[in-house]
Amino acid sequence: MLFTKMIDKRQKCVVKLLNVKHNVRLHSHDVRYGSGSGQQSVTGVTTVEDSNSYWSVRGTSGSFCHRGTPIRCGQTIRLTHVNTGRNLHSHYFTSPLSSNQEVSAFGEAGEGDHLDEWTVQCRGAVWEREEAVRFLHASTDALLSITGEQYGRPIHGQREVHAMMDPSQHSLWRAMEGVYMKPSDSPLGNREYSHPLHTEF
């Protein structure tokens, strides 16, 4: 299962998220949309090693995640882009390629607004490490999705990430590379693991 860590700048649960249908990782970078909100763009990339695909799993402003706590199915979280400090975000702007709901990265140093909140949809009680899950935008009820549209310059070949109302194979995501927590009865016994692909608990 996935576990959170303390929400400060030194300690984070950091993951890459793979779209199961299109085999691309959720990605962002300091490139802004040329239309819509004009905020930082969010895309999908096939490259495994790109450091711009790391996201930290955090609590919301009103619901903190304590170190080593499992992430529950139905829990609302924020996903903060590690390299730029902006949060995964959505709103009613139209996405540039598919005309779905735009997804962007917003805020500064992990601080944004209520449109940065996403609810984890999974089958059981908690988000399991190997499970494909969905992320429901808490304010608009749209699901984080990819349907395969590709950008040209300056981000040639990267896929558009957007939000859609209906669940489908396009909205399934799995946690991949990252830093994970191993549960322990004692907070002093918690250990961090940084390992590619499938880290076992």
Rank of each mutant, 00 (worst) to 15 (best):
T4K: 05
T4V: 10
K5R: 15
M6L: 13
M6H: 06
K9C: 02
R10L: 13
Q11T: 11
Q11E: 10
V15R: 03
L17M: 14
L17R: 02
N19D: 05
K21S: 14
V24W: 03
L26Y: 04
S28W: 01
D30I: 12
V31S: 02
Y33N: 02
S35A: 01
G38M: 08
G38P: 06
Q39D: 11
S41R: 02
V42I: 11
T43C: 06
G44P: 12
V45D: 10
V45T: 14
V45K: 12
V45I: 15
T47F: 06
N52C: 07
N52T: 01
S53M: 01
S63A: 14
G68H: 04
T69V: 14
P70M: 12
C73Q: 07
Q75L: 12
R78F: 09
N83I: 02
G85K: 08
S90Q: 08
F93Q: 02
F93S: 06
F93I: 05
L97E: 04
S99T: 10
S99I: 06
Q101H: 09
Q101V: 09
Q101N: 09
S104K: 00
G107P: 07
G107A: 07
E108R: 15
E108L: 01
A109N: 15
E111K: 14
H114Y: 07
D116F: 09
E117Q: 03
W118C: 10
W118E: 01
V120I: 15
G124K: 06
V126H: 04
E128N: 04
E128D: 07
E130S: 12
V133E: 00
F135P: 00
H137C: 05
A138I: 02
A138N: 07
A142R: 14
L144P: 03
S145M: 10
G148S: 06
G148C: 07
E149K: 13
Q150D: 02
Y151R: 02
P154T: 03
G157E: 06
G157R: 06
V161N: 11
M164R: 07
M165Q: 13
S171T: 14
L172C: 03
W173A: 09
M176H: 01
E177H: 13
G178I: 05
M181L: 05
S186L: 13
P187G: 13
P187H: 12
R191F: 02
T199R: 00
F201V: 14
